[in-house]
Design a protein around this nucleic acid. Sequence first.
DNA 1: TGTACATCAGTGAACGCGCGTTCACTGATGTAC
DNA 2: TGTACATCAGTGAACGCGCGTTCACTGATGTAC
Lengths: 205, 205
Amino acid sequence: MREAEGEARRYHHGDLRRGLIDAARQILEADGPSALSLRAVARQAGVSPAAPYHHFKDKAELLGAVAQEGWRALQLRMIQAKAGVSADERLAALGVAYVGFARENPALYRVMYEAARQSQATGSALGDGQGATYSVLRDTMVECGGEPDGPDLELAALAAWSSAHGLAEMAGFKRFHALKAQLGGETAFFKAVLSHMAVFPTPRR
Amino acid sequence: MREAEGEARRYHHGDLRRGLIDAARQILEADGPSALSLRAVARQAGVSPAAPYHHFKDKAELLGAVAQEGWRALQLRMIQAKAGVSADERLAALGVAYVGFARENPALYRVMYEAARQSQATGSALGDGQGATYSVLRDTMVECGGEPDGPDLELAALAAWSSAHGLAEMAGFKRFHALKAQLGGETAFFKAVLSHMAVFPTPRR
DNA sequence: TGTACATCAGTGAACGCGCGTTCACTGATGTAC
DNA sequence: TGTACATCAGTGAACGCGCGTTCACTGATGTAC
């Protein structure tokens, strides 16, 4: 399908920039990162292959925008997750939120890291979504009693971030399906694994 | 350059299968996974684009072989790392070995996981290098006092595997360069981060 | 040891494909008077 | 309110490219006698 809605096709799209980013996400969800070409995005948005160039300098810039929105969404989800949770459960909540997001949007998640690596390689920080998201974790660690600005806080934050990222990537492997089922679902599974990582303290009940 | 050695060019390569896999690794090291096309591999091996088809069914099979060798190498490195190390330091040694390998061969490491995901998606287990490597970790956990075959062992092994994988992916970000330098090098850095993860017990000195 | 021949492992040209990007263009919109 | 015109946001055709794969071929190798 070329159009999401039955609306009459207009020569001017209205907000094609938005439309292109949405189209990219639809492609990611449906066919994964390898299907994400500029032409495919234009096709999905119902527009000619040249149209995107009025809104993005090149393919990299479009992908960067998609990634940036992804980081922003993850960040918001983490902020929501920690709201109203007691200090000793806050980090665990953050971890579950992080891994949950990554598992629900695996292709987008991949693109987010690809963009972060890319923007580091090219030196362009173009809206450092990864940095802002990482800050949410570090701030939370301080709230939960971490010594601010010491190497120990940084180490703990990196350990937590790594653990969550690693789990997000591993959770997709069939090898762990049985374990997941045994524990009664994704969320319980995430909690259980995270509770084995010292940086995600979970009060044992 | 088309030939690595000054040896006279022979019509028959001798062991082109080997040569192609080596060529692939050279490309990975030099230009990363995105440069890894069948044609590029043939070029690097000094052979026509059609030649690889006498040794591999298609591109996926070649990449699978490269990945398989990578998993095997990682496995050996882990086995070496744990040899002759006392039980209470064995897991930490394994973690350092794992992360070290991934950091020294980042492009190969990426291809290894790509292949693992792929072979899971297509159902073909074609030499499950990831499985064998994971087993080294799980076996080590049992040696170090884990209850065999319980869900707890599986959880701990997954937690450790995730942590190491996550750290391997994060260690490349500039964000952590200062911390790495502060701790005095890669290995010390890996040890420090891993020691924050409960599943990698490190005796504090 | 020499020769005929089957088999193996290469070649090189060609295929169709989808890609990112550019270009001259045109239809729609908004603003000045 | 109507009209001229600049600007904006599209079109569609074309570019060159590298890709994976196939094909008919040929040079090299090894085996039977």
